[in-house]
Each structure stands twice: as C-alpha cells, then as structure tokens.
Computed example of a mutant assay.
Amino acid sequence: MPASLQPLSDELIISALTAREFAHFVDDDGDIGGNWQGCLIYFFRLGKNNEIFQVRALTQTEFSTDDVPQLYSFCNAWNHDRLWPKAYVHTSDDGVVRVVGEVGADFEHGVTPDQLDQVLICGIATGVELAEAVAALK
C-alpha cells in the first residue's frame, strides 16, 4: 500500500535527511541546511501555509558586480539547457555576487516521504552540479 500524504514539516525534512545519514544543521533562525562538497544548501518551507518545499543551493564562488553580465549569460544558458536547479544571480548587501540555485515543489495536498526524498536528492545533486559549473567560471 502506498504511503499516505503528510503535511510538509521541518520534522519531515529532518527525517528525510537523517534517513540518508546526511549531516545537517538547524541555524539560529530555525532554517535547515547542510554542506555538500562545499555547497551550502538550505531546505525551506515557503508559501501561505508553508506548503512549498524549496531546496536552495548557495554556491560559494564569489564574484564582483563587474561579473554580473557574464553570470546572467551563464544562468540563462543553464536554465535553457537544464530543468534543475533554476539558477539566478544574487548580489548581497556587501556587494558580493553569487549564483544561487533552487528546486521547488508544491505539496499543498501533502507529501509522502518518498516524494520528499526525491525532491531533496534532486535539489542536492543538481545544486552541487551548479556549484561546480560556477566554480569553473573563475
């Protein structure tokens, strides 16, 4: 019998990470994250009812604002050729520019542990691929 749908929760996300024996943390803001091959990845619940699951990969390679046109071109090509993760350029308040990747899924009606695991693994694996491709730009 298939697993029943459960509401998306931090506990369910942590359970999925623990089931794979992935090291992870919960920061002071309550955000769940981990580090895979030097890529910082967070797992968020977004939306009106926290029903959207987002895996956000923060690539570690730093760029300057002079690099933004090149990074826009990179992200456009990446998004054209790949489904995951969606890539975009982010400039922080201190002027550091990075590429960020996101994989998201709407679990408004609930999620099974297997469904959550599938999106989690997709976000981690493709986030690391993005980080490696971004690092090669330097």
Rank of each mutant, 00 (worst) to 15 (best):
F107E: 10
G104M: 09
I41F: 05
S4M: 13
E21Q: 15
Y88P: 02
R98T: 14
H24P: 04
Q115F: 06
R45C: 05
Q37S: 15
S64C: 06
C122I: 10
L58F: 09
E108W: 10
F53S: 01
L130S: 07
L120P: 01
P2I: 12
E21W: 10
K86A: 10
D94V: 14
H109D: 15
F74V: 06
T18P: 01
T112S: 15
T112Q: 12
T18E: 13
D94Q: 15
E51M: 03
N50A: 13
A23Y: 02
A131Q: 05
I52F: 12
P85Y: 00
L12E: 03
G95T: 04
M1F: 11
L130F: 10
V26H: 05
D67C: 08
T91A: 09
G33N: 11
D94G: 11
L8Y: 01
W84C: 06
D67F: 07
A87F: 05
N79G: 14
L137G: 08
T59A: 10
Q54D: 13
V103P: 00
L71R: 04
L116T: 00
V26D: 05
N35Y: 12
G38N: 08
L83M: 07
Q6S: 05
A57M: 08
D67T: 09
V55Q: 02
A136V: 04
W84M: 11
M1Y: 11
G38R: 05
F25M: 13
I41M: 04
F43S: 04
E62Q: 15
L116S: 00
W36D: 00
G38Y: 05
A16W: 04
Y88N: 10
L58I: 06
G47A: 04
H24F: 11
V99S: 02
L40N: 09
K138N: 14
L5E: 06
R56S: 15
V99N: 03
N50H: 09
P113L: 04
I32F: 00
H109M: 12
S92I: 00
E108I: 12
L130C: 11
A16I: 06
A19M: 11
A105T: 09
E129G: 11
G33H: 12
V128T: 06
G30C: 08
C39Q: 02
Q115C: 07
D29G: 15
I124Y: 12
V55D: 02
A131D: 11
H90L: 14
G47H: 02
E11M: 06
I52T: 09
S4Q: 12
L120H: 01
R45V: 02
R56G: 08
S9C: 10
